[in-house]
């Protein structure tokens, strides 16, 4: 392999420090899925259009299909597999289940990660803010209504916990 194509990266994935050799043309999505078996993030388009691959990069949700793995050197990555507590799933996950926000489920991990980032930044979003925040995560099954309801419900519960 020609020098320069392979890179050592160090990053934190779901709280665990990792070191890995990656090819410059590998995306973060590919590395998470293939090296770490974190297949919660999905490839729906590979072009930044669908949001199925959403993960948090240093706290902000991004399309991991458009992030090169080398770019993630020194970064903190959070995926759907990393948000549950030891004995219970995250309130957003719980609300998605209870409110019928999950149908085929392919968009779900990405949706939840976007919602997670939203509620971190804005614990009390109104409906318009939720719709806007979710606009980069396509869902073909639900028509979004129950997803929006779930995010609202999760916000309420999380606030209750904090307050």
């Amino acid at each position: 392999m020609k020098k320069g194509f392979v890179h050592e990266i160090n990053f934190t994935v779901n709280g665990i420090k990792r070191a890995l050799s990656v090819h410059s043309n590998e995306t973060l999505l590919k590395v998470l899925r293939e090296h770490y078996g974190l297949t919660g993030a999905k490839e729906g388009c590979g072009g930044g259009e669908c949001g199925a691959c959403t993960v948090l990069l240093n706290g902000s949700p991004v399309n991991s299909c458009l992030v090169l793995a080398v770019e993630a050197d020194n970064a903190h990555i959070l995926t759907i597999e990393g948000i549950a507590a030891k004995d219970s799933i995250h309130p957003i996950q719980q609300a998605f289940i209870e409110y019928g926000a999950v149908q085929c489920g392919f968009c779900t991990p990405g949706m939840i990660m976007t919602a997670y980032a939203l509620l971190q930044k804005n614990p009390d979003p109104d409906e318009a803010q939720i719709k806007r925040a979710l606009s980069g995560n396509l869902c073909r099954c639900t028509g979004y209504v129950q997803i929006i309801e779930a995010v609202k419900a999760a916000a309420k519960r999380m606030k209750g916990k904090r307050g």
């Binding site: 289940i97 209870e98 999950v102 939840i112």
Partner: peptide, 23 residues
């Protein structure tokens, strides 16, 4: 009754395996 679906847990946690997730 509005019982939550069993498959939703797998899907909301990222555990659910779809074809591309199988190796």
């Amino acid at each position: 009754k509005p019982s939550p679906r069993e498959d939703a847990y797998d899907k909301a946690t990222g555990n659910a395996k779809y074809i591309a997730d199988i190796d």
